[in-house]
Write a protein that binds this DNA or RNA. Structure first.
Lengths: 346, 346
DNA sequence: TCGATCTTCTAGATCGTTCTAGAAAAACGA
DNA sequence: TCGTTTTTCTAGAACGATCTAGAAGATCGA
């Protein structure tokens, strides 16, 4: 049963292994009659096509691109933003009949030798929301694997597809300033924050995520006179946004606006308001980032970025030889919805 | 620069290739001093460890398991149910330092030879919400790749991790019967449904998804006297549930309860009610399936199933030699929340 | 001191393909 | 009819590792 190889089929048909290989990969290199005879015999013998590993070794193409994710995989997918990115990437991958290999980043065994990043048979890799100084990134570069990051790197020779985070945040900041907001809370994700029911207040230098830092800088730039507090409810998720906002809303010192650095967190904040009978845009302003699909029905003011296109662009750079871009800056757009309104007079 | 192999390193150090290989894979087979010398030289030469494809070929282990998804990848991830499953699977994969290979099922090129399912270098595969008679499943079995399905198969020798769909639906049906509901609408996903603003009414034999069919059967079993209509708003998503429910709510012939065959669709239905000023559980009953994280805050009555455990169980069967189970039936539980209430008198 | 055991390392086959070069046969143009 | 091109097929060497068996030297107990 087992052990049927190209050679087996070749012998059965009475041709050379090369010919059988061609029957699968280069149909125009042999006569149709022979090709059909080969395929039929293969079927009979239970041969299911060339072995993937052997093909990968010989041809030097693994037929898969890796996707490096932040932290645990579970949290990665809880944000529709990641899903949209992946969908765009998958679209291009499909076009080049390439698979996507998810590489979970258990922070633990990265240092040890036997992790997925070391072992993975991939031609290239997309680095999604993983900081450029992460050990896994070094491993990939040591392996000589081409990578595209979604962080806008400082190295001019690295590949990336990104948005101008500072500018994007500044757009939102200007909007808030114009509405008269001078006292805001920024919700960030911070896995380490698990004290005080999982909610913690941070200083800027404790944020530790370059995207988040850039966005905060953008907000500060556009709101120079505002008081700005940074609060984390834990992970980048609806629940954490909810918890963070609850902490803020139940405190004695409410801001006039809450900005989630991702839409899921902002939506959590809206939920917290709803529970307390507060109306977003009237009693308190809420805004987010990314413009995920759920943002529109919820009426959430946010900064739109072309999520799926970002995934597509990464895919093109990695797979499409016709694409010569190495660094792509995507446009962003402020989308004003009902959740933002003028700051109430004090 | 390029072309640094085991052999190169071996020559540089002055040992045999086998020894270098052992330095990476079997540290106890050589002296510590030599091992360190080898690793240091490798570093110097820019050798990043054994080539993944070559290792896969020789050792017969690809170091990855495939995940077969329904339809386009984008829709697959729009349901948190899939995300939960994947998280559980990833958890086990991580433990065995194995990667996950996503195999999108573009219905088009399955017949052609050059699709991901044919090419993928995987040791095993998880078949997630793909019917057992799908061509891709045949390809996997032809390749001799062990699989575990999330559909409860009829074949006694196939591996699966599933719930008793009929029983699960019957639990919900009993609940609705007890509340006096005799007229319900079931929301199903049906990609082909794009007429009439994407909303369409179906007969039972048009549903064409074995899970959905089982759930409808379970409902019918527990609600023998009820009138039951089947409506689809398109894909398995919030938006489709919303559209389907809008169609139902705006018709002259409203039911007393709407059952979404997935929570995302049921949540969409709740949204449609909210927009119309209807209160779930009072004006109309809404219920779902799966008990995704968003179901609880929304107060959605649903049938809980251990999503993440399902993923874990699949992972164990595929990867853990200590696991001898071949077929696992997971428990389900009716979770009653505010969205279900007694049927109003007519 | 001698055989037995353990540690450390090596030679060479092997995994199942695809690739390069080229041979044999068929088709073609003049 | 003869060289030339095209089609169709093949031999044999890679690809880069791991595995099996076994050799050489070190260690050990009696």
């Amino acid at each position: 049963m087992a052990g049927v190889t190209l050679k087996t089929v070749a012998q059965a048909v009475g041709v050379s292994p090369s010919t059988v290989s061609n029957a699968y990969n280069k149909p125009d290199q042999l006569s149709t009659a022979l090709r059909e005879r080969i395929l039929a015999t293969a079927q009979e013998l239970g041969y299911a096509g060339p072995d993937a590993s052997a093909r990968a070794l010989r041809s030097g193409k693994a037929g898969a691109i890796g996707v490096l994710f932040t932290d645990k995989l579970s949290y990665a997918f809880s944000d529709p933003y990641a899903v949209g990115f992946l969908a765009g990437l998958a679209e291009v991958a499909e076009e080049f009949s390439t698979s996507l290999l998810l590489m979970p980043l258990s922070s633990a065994d990265i240092v040890g030798g036997s992790n997925a990043v070391q072992q993975a048979a991939i031609d290239a890799a997309a680095i999604f929301c993983v900081p450029g100084d992460h050990p896994a990134v070094d491993i990939l570069s040591a392996r000589g694997i081409p990578t595209v990051s979604t962080d806008r790197g400082d190295h001019p020779d690295l590949c990336w597809v990104a948005i101008d985070e500072v500018e994007a945040a500044a757009k939102l900041g200007q909007h808030l300033t114009r509405l008269g907001h001078r006292d805001i809370v920024v919700l960030v994700d911070k896995a380490e924050a698990q004290a005080r029911d999982g909610v913690v207040e941070l200083n800027f230098d404790e944020v530790g995520c370059s995207d988040c830092e850039s966005r905060i800088q953008g907000l500060e730039k556009a709101m120079p006179d505002a008081r700005m507090r940074i609060v984390s409810g834990g992970y980048n998720s609806f629940g954490s946004g909810l918890k963070g906002a609850e902490y803020v809303l139940d405190s004695q010192d409410r801001p006039t606006a809450i900005v989630g650095l991702s839409d899921v967190q902002a939506l959590g904040a809206m939920e917290a308001m709803k529970v307390r009978g507060l109306i977003p845009g009237r009693d308190l302003t809420v805004a987010g980032f990314d413009d995920i699909p759920a943002a529109e029905p919820a009426g959430l003011t946010t900064v739109h970025q072309p999520i799926k296109d970002k995934g597509r662009a990464v895919g093109r750079i990695l797979l499409d030889p016709a694409t010569t871009d190495r660094q792509v800056l995507m446009p962003t757009e402020l989308v004003v919805r009902a959740s933002s309104g003028p700051a109430p007079r004090r």
